[in-house]
Amino acid sequence: MTAETPSDATTEQTTEQTTEQTTEQTTGDLTTPTLAQVLEVFEELWPESLAQSWDATGLVAGRPERAVERIHFAVDPVHEVVEEAVGAGAQLLVTHHPLLLRGVNSVAATGFKGDVIHTLVEGGCALLTAHTNADSAVGGVSDVIADVLGLEDVVPLAPAEGGLSEEGLGRVGRLPQSMTLAEFGSRVFGAMPSVAGGVRVAGDRDGIVSRVAVCGGAGDGLFDEVRASGADVYVTADLRHHPASEFREAARLTGGRPYLVEVSHFGSEWLWLPAAAEALDHLLTDRGFGVEIAVSSRNTDPWDFVLTPGT
Rank of each mutant, 00 (worst) to 15 (best):
T180E: 09
V104L: 13
T110H: 12
V116E: 01
E80R: 13
P77K: 01
H79K: 15
F73Y: 14
P64C: 01
A90R: 07
R70L: 06
V172W: 07
L157Y: 05
V172C: 02
E167M: 03
L120A: 05
A158R: 15
S136D: 08
D147W: 07
L128K: 05
V81E: 02
G190Y: 09
V78L: 13
L100I: 15
G185E: 04
V188E: 03
D143Y: 00
A130W: 10
A126E: 07
V144W: 00
E161F: 08
T180P: 00
E65G: 11
C125Y: 08
G103C: 05
L169K: 05
E69L: 01
E167F: 00
D76F: 05
P159T: 04
V138L: 14
P159F: 06
E84M: 14
V68A: 05
L157H: 10
L157N: 06
V155C: 01
G114R: 11
A160R: 00
G162L: 11
V138N: 11
R187P: 04
V94C: 06
A74E: 00
G170I: 02
F189L: 15
L92I: 05
P176F: 00
G87I: 04
H97K: 03
V155P: 05
D143L: 06
V81D: 07
E80W: 09
S186H: 13
G124I: 06
V75L: 12
P176W: 03
L164Y: 10
E122I: 07
L92R: 01
E183S: 13
T119D: 14
A191K: 02
V107K: 08
